[in-house]
Every structure is written in C-alpha cells, then in structure tokens.
Amino acid sequence: MPSKGYVEISVESCKGCNFCVIHCPTECLALNTSDTNSYGLHYAYLTDEEKCIACQNCAVICPDAAITVYKKAKKKAA
C-alpha cells in the first residue's frame, strides 16, 4: 500500500526529546539510540514510511521545528 505521507526530520536540529515518538498515533517514529548528531544527541527518524498518515502531530509538538511533513497529493480527475 502506498503511504499517505512522510516526514523529514532534520538530524542537526533534533535534540532527541522524544515528544514526536510518544505522540505519533501510528508509532512510525523512533529515536536512533545507536547514532548521534554533531551535538552528541540521539535523533528521531521515520521507521516505517507506509504507516505515516501525515497527521502533523509530530511537527506541531516538535519544540525545535525539525520536522517537515509531506502529504500525498490528490489525483486530479481525468
């Protein structure tokens, strides 16, 4: 099934507060605990693009405005 949307998370802006992970309704975000950004902080990433519903919850709650949300465009009637 094609995804309804996807998010892009800026690795350098993310501070790893985990708010987006706990507020994601479809649980498709996670904190990368094996890698850090240049500030030494774990960052969030999209685990499963197919689950993303582009609800913007993560982007709204993100304190550092690190998340950009894209939604699948509706097809124009032929």
Binding site: G5, Y6, E12, S13, K15, G16, C17, N18, F19, Y39, L41, A54, Q56, A59, V60, I61, C62, P63, D64, A65, A66, I67, T68, V69, Y70, K71, K72, A73
Partner: peptide, 29 residues
C-alpha cells in the same frame, strides 16, 4: 518526492540558528 505536497514546514520567520534551549523545552515550541 513525486506526487506529494508540502503541508508543514519550519516558519521562515524563525531563523535557522539552532536554539540553545534544553531538549523538550516549551520555549522553543
């Protein structure tokens, strides 16, 4: 990606400087 449209991004009026606030602080929100 093709077939997707932008629906939420960082506002242009917020500079791209990294904020000094602690992780999770509501100041930045």
């Amino acid at each position: 990606k093709d077939g997707y449209k932008l629906i939420y991004k960082r506002p242009k009026t917020l500079l791209s400087t990294r904020m000094h606030y602690c992780p999770g602080c509501f100041h930045s929100t």
